[in-house]
Amino acid sequence: MPTPTTTVPFQAVLDAHGSALHRHLVGVLGPHDGADAYQETLLAALRAWPPRHDGNLRAWLFTVAHRKVIDHARARDRRPVPVGSVPEHGSSGGIGAGPDLDLWAVVRSLPDKQRAAVALRHGDDWSYADIAAVLGISEAAVRQNVTAGLDRLREVLT
């Protein structure tokens, strides 16, 4: 049975979720790629607007964003990584909180699902169910990804 398209004005979604979306993308991609992905997400969302979707428009918007994050993460992985920009191991060299060892830099080094799950669950207080909708996986799988991601953060940062 077809879902009716929403009649919510795009501006309302932008007002409600734009700021959190931008912040999330800066968290998982850094300020520069995050801002790019944010703009790409708005364009893609507006092209697809109105979605055949009657329920969770936030999850719909972040699903669009998640694809952009994966594109950017792939592109980044293909670029040469400056030495020390992404810590591979729990180095306590330096004071431990230098610009290259900050928490979000480590979040960015996590695998796609862990990165998204940790950032949404703990960076933006999402429910496991909503994260599951964005990632297209079960809630149990979301929990596993959150746990694995946090374990990795602790391992690197402490």
Partner: peptide, 15 residues
Amino acid sequence: SDALLAELTLGPPIE
């Protein structure tokens, strides 16, 4: 590690 979670909750800095 609640310090870690607290820092995550703050979110990344945005200009």
